[in-house]
């Protein structure tokens, strides 16, 4: 970092610095786009599977509208099992599956598979927590009107939990930004790959620090979006 700053002092060295590093902005832009793409797509798919799973975890619990203790226990243990595997291990563990689905295990598209799979149980638990916050009285009121389990879910649980659920999406997205960087180390693409190959293996400080700054901006923006959304929903109801 200091070298960069001192290098910037004289104009002559500034030019040579630029010439040496002119490829960085473009590489950074490409990598940023790849990260956003990976994270967005895997967040989406993580919710496609994780949201229903979380709903099932809640509603099959004892006394709830779809009480089924066996289903609840089996799903609960699967979720716990996947969550207890460190992501970097999980990534390697499911390479055969990734290959089966995408045809390769290297690259941005291939990374989406482990990212999604690892995020599903995470999302399920987040959704579960959000839905459990809903007062039981509301479910009972709906049941007393003759609501079906399905109506309880989509007319009571989900709308009532919306502020909390949208914060969950932000947390998941941020988590996946971190995971995607790990995927980058095994050739997943995105900012992780850039930082690893250039920043770490080739001691390119500029690349290293630029990726860090981009990551900070990314995470901040996602958190702000999530906070804003949750606050807007909550404010409307106040």
């Amino acid at each position: 970092m200091i070298e960069i700053l001192t290098g910037l002092i004289s104009q002559e060295s500034l030019i040579s610095f630029w010439e040496a590093n002119s490829w960085v902005p473009e590489a950074l832009a490409v990598a940023t786009w790849e990260t956003i793409y990976m994270v967005a797509v895997s967040t989406f798919f993580a919710y496609v599977f994780g949201l229903p799973l979380g709903i099932i975890l809640v509603t099959t619990s004892p006394g709830h509208v779809l009480e089924n203790i066996r289903v609840n226990q089996v799903l609960g243990s699967i979720v716990n099992a996947v969550r207890s595997i460190p992501f970097i291990v999980f990534l390697i563990l499911i390479i055969p599956f990734t290959r089966l689905v995408v045809g390769t295990y290297i690259g941005t598209v291939a990374s989406i598979v482990p990212l999604t799979l690892a995020a599903i149980p995470f999302v399920a638990r987040l959704v579960e927590t959000s839905l459990k916050e809903i007062e039981w009285g509301l479910v009972e009121a709906a049941l007393s009107m003759g609501a079906s389990a399905w109506q309880v879910i989509y007319k009571v649980l989900i709308p009532e939990a919306m502020p909390s659920l949208s914060l969950g999406v932000a947390i998941t997205t941020i988590n996946l930004v971190g995971y995607s960087a790990m995927a980058g180390i095994v050739g997943g693409g995105g900012l992780g790959t850039l930082a690893y190959y250039y920043g770490y293996q080739r001691y390119e400080d500029l690349v290293m620090w630029s990726t860090v700054i981009v990551l900070i901006i990314l995470v901040q923006s996602v958190q702000m979006l999530g906070d804003n959304l949750a606050a807007r929903i909550a404010k409307k109801r106040r």
Binding site: E135, G137, L138, L143, S144, G146, A147, E160, M162
Partner: peptide
Amino acid sequence: LRVARQKIGMIFQHFNLLSS
């Protein structure tokens, strides 16, 4: 039972209105 419940109204101590 669901159909029968539609014809039995219920009110609660803590109202149980949907905040959404």
